[in-house]
Write a protein that binds this DNA or RNA. Structure first.
Length: 762
DNA sequence: GTTTTAACTTAGTAATCTGCAG
DNA sequence: CTGCAGATTACTAAGTTAAAAC
């Protein structure tokens, strides 16, 4: 490994460029606070940011992180400068409405895009069986009045046929819309709308090829957070020991804080500092001059008031609760659905996020800031021109109403903490989400076909004479082997300090040429998405190890491990290897293939159903571990484990009792040989068998739960595992699908449940 | 080319619901 | 019927990625 990879120039950092260094000193101060006191839950703490060893270690390292950050290379320095600049701008613009407005508002608006009034080619259409001529024509004339008169319905027979066509074709091409060869069926059947709507099989229809997401979209707009209700006078806030009546805006923000008093983070410096700063902005000038020290604020009365309130809510009579429930239901009925292309679809989140105090995950520099109340004037509505536009609440206006059918959202607003955009979108069971999900798995299946080639290539690239190529190849190896996330760069100081593959720093890996009986071991220890700790020690191939040593040469702990790489470079490369390939496809692919392979390995044909389900959960667990999906051990874990143990013991006692009875019955029978005693034996035998089964079930449950203590299965099940694998497995072994997927999940995966047969292969 | 933004997926936790043992 | 544990749902933060803007 010597000079032959032109890496001599900039990737190795040469001496620090001093001037940048000091600017950031303050930031370190903040950083030192991070990682210190954490989640209220100690256990969780252990799991997430894990042992203090990690914390200390990372704190120390951060101290002089910036020093080096800037010394890295000229381009790095450049980057940093931009970051700074942007940060300043951001701060300014948060006070500077007009500018923001422009960014979000008019840009697109200038040329209201969206719905073409001319139909394109036939094949540009999302043609469903019931998009018969009539409905098409409706669409085509949409400059005028073409609101679908009725929500269409599905139920066709021919469509069944298409199920398989899809699968086969997809083998090669991913789901491409079929030619519109099927004739349209008009089926305004007799069934109730609801029933029919449930049966709509969008997956048997063709998809848009022109990049549009819908032709028609109508909805009622979002539901806003209820207005603030001032506290009763008897609930008081004290400053410096004296009661003080706050103005409504200041009081509201104070209630946010008071509600969180039990949370540990209200004791954190950053949280308190951010909160106080934002709170003061809401105060009147008198309040501002009086309230100068958060430590002198006493919110306990308010806190108790809210606790009492929630207690009272729990104690409400059944009728009252019922009433609230019904009211809620009404709201869902009215606002929870939209009509998209002839079908009524469920909206995922039709309520606007209420105001409150921001709590990021992990050590977030913005924790405690005020998340402001969203008003109609902040909302952009998206719907089709020819739909009945949602009405803003009386006396208010929308920020904008646009008609962009190249996107899937119904409404959006800009959030004030990070300046990012939030959206109202459809439920996962909707066509628009389902198609995308399906497509995701098809892309992963295409990767399956060429993954060998890609692996061969990146192994080859470990030997490249170009540093950037080696880095790319090693990073890809990690992404493939360890299912790491891509790892975008983040703005320092804006978010918690977390990393993914491309943003790994020197301090996150340790190399051990020898460890126990293994060679070339790499130890990873870093905080990933949501500040979940990733800790892993794995042996790697010698070449990878040598390359890592090379990447680490002459670098400081806070320097990037892959200084010649970022996600954009990586994804561009991947795109060239396979159409649609990006870093995250590897996670999907590896998760799904692991499930399939684990199921094959773990399922014993002779096992009982519960044992099979345990196998399924174990296979699922293998994936969750691969993807590092963790959770806090449930607060009641120990207790519930114990309860289960007690149950098991009881059951064991029952079993031995039942066995005794069986024995007795048997000897009775031997003695008398009559029919009656024979029957008794049978009965007892059955009882024993039943109890054995129950016991087994309990034991399996205990094992499952124990193994699952700090692993979350839900995330992978919902986002990474091709549902058709699970459906096929259920069909193959006669396990009810509801044993694996609950109602919501079955709705989301309806397409898979409908189309996968027992021999489906990912 | 680099940075920024928009759009959408993925993520863990808190709140709420449900069904079952007592 | 009631309380509570486990299941489900709601919520919203935090990622990824492609495209737009500089």
């Amino acid at each position: 490994m010597s000079g032959d990879y032109g890496h001599g120039d900039s990737q190795v950092n040469s001496g620090s460029k001093g001037s940048e260094t000091h600017k950031h000193k303050d930031k370190h101060k903040d950083k030192e606070h991070r990682h210190k006191d954490h989640k209220k839950d100690k256990e969780r703490e252990k799991l997430k940011h894990s042992n203090s060893e990690y914390k200390e270690h990372s704190e120390k390292k951060h101290k002089d992180r910036d020093k080096l950050k800037h010394s890295n290379s000229s381009s790095d320095k450049h980057r940093e400068k931009h970051k700074e600049k942007r940060k300043e701008e951001k701060i300014k613009s948060s006070h500077d409405k007009p500018k923001k407005e422009k960014e979000n508002g008019y840009v697109r608006d200038a040329s209201p895009p969206a719905i073409k009034s001319e139909p394109e080619e036939d094949n540009g259409f999302y043609a469903s069986p019931q998009h018969n001529k009539t409905s098409k024509r409706e669409y085509n004339n949409q400059e005028f009045e073409c609101k679908p008169k009725k929500v269409k319905v599905e139920h066709d027979r021919k469509a069944q046929k298409r199920k398989h066509e899809y699968e086969e074709d997809e083998e090669d091409e991913d789901i491409k819309p079929k030619k519109k060869t099927k004739d349209k069926r008009v089926t305004e059947g007799k069934k109730s709308k609801k029933e029919e709507e449930e049966k709509w099989k969008w997956w048997e229809e063709e998809r848009y090829t022109d990049g549009s997401k819908w032709r028609f979209l109508e909805h009622k707009g979002p539901v806003f957070a209820p207005p603030y209700e001032p506290l009763p006078d008897k609930v008081r806030f004290y400053y410096d020991g004296k009661p003080m009546k706050l103005s409504a805006p200041a009081e509201e923000v104070a209630t946010f804080f008071s509600k969180m008093l039990d949370h540990e983070y209200t004791t954190k410096d950053i949280f308190r500092k951010n909160f106080f700063k934002d709170w003061r902005k809401e105060m009147t000038s008198e309040e501002k001059s009086k309230i100068t020290d958060l430590n002198k604020c006493d919110f306990t009365e308010m806190n108790e008031y809210f606790k009492a309130q929630s207690e009272a809510r729990k104690q409400m009579s059944k009728e009252e609760k019922q009433k609230i429930k019904e009211e809620n239901e009404r709201l869902v009925q009215e606002y929870g659905f939209c009509i998209m292309d002839n079908h009524k679809e469920r909206i995922g989140n039709f309520r606007i996020e209420p105001p409150g105090l921001f709590r990021g995950r992990g050590d977030h520099p913005k924790m405690g800031m005020l998340k402001r109340r969203i008003r109609p004037e902040d909302i952009i509505i998206n719907c089709s021109k020819d739909s009945k536009h949602p009405k803003p609440p009386p006396g208010t206006k929308w920020k904008e109403v646009r008609h962009d059918n190249k996107v899937t959202w119904l409404a959006s607003w800009t959030e004030n903490i990070q300046g990012s955009i939030k959206y109202i979108m459809l439920n996962p069971s909707s066509r628009i989400k389902g198609e995308k999900d399906w497509q995701k798995y098809e892309t992963a299946r295409r990767l399956k076909k060429c993954v060998d080639r890609i692996r061969t290539q990146y192994r080859d690239d470990w030997k490249s004479k170009e540093m950037r190529i080696r880095q790319r190849a090693v990073a890809l190896y990690f992404i493939d082997k360890l299912a790491l996330r891509a790892g975008n760069e983040k703005e320092e100081g804006e978010t918690a300090d977390t990393v993914g593959c491309c943003s790994l720093r020197v301090e996150h890996v340790k190399l051990y040429p020898k460890m126990d009986d293994q060679e070339y071991v790499v130890e990873f220890d870093f905080l990933g998405k949501d500040s979940i700790r990733y800790y892993n020690k794995i042996p790697v191939e010698k070449r990878v190890f040598k390359n890592l040593q090379l990447f680490l040469e002459n670098k400081q702990p806070e320097d990037d491990l892959f200084d010649r790489l970022n996600t954009s470079i990586l994804n561009k490369h991947l795109q060239e290897l396979m159409d649609g390939l990006t870093a995250k496809v590897f996670r999907t692919y590896n998760a799904s293939i692991t499930l399939q392979q684990q199921l094959k390995e773990l399922t014993c044909p002779d096992d009982s159903i519960p044992a099979k389900i345990l196998s399924y959960n174990r296979a699922n667990r293998a994936v969750a571990i691969l993807c590092n999906h963790q959770r806090a051990p449930p607060k009641t874990f120990e207790k519930s484990m114990q309860n289960l143990q007690t149950k098991i013991e009881e059951k064991q006692n029952q079993l031995s009792a039942a066995r005794k009875q069986l024995k007795v019955a048997k000897s009775d029978h031997k003695a008398s040989h009559d029919d009656k005693s024979k029957k008794a034996v049978e009965v007892k035998r059955k009882a024993v068998q039943r109890i054995e089964e129950q016991l087994m079930k309990l034991q399996v449950q205990a094992t499952d739960r124990e193994e699952n203590k700090q692993i979350a299965l839900g995330t992978s099940k919902l986002n990474y595992l091709d549902p058709r694998i699970s459906v096929a497995w259920c069909k193959k072994w006669g396990v009810g699908i509801e044993k694996i997927y609950n109602k919501t999940q079955r709705e989301k995966f309806a397409w898979a449940i409908d189309m996968a047969e027992k021999d489906y292969e990912f």
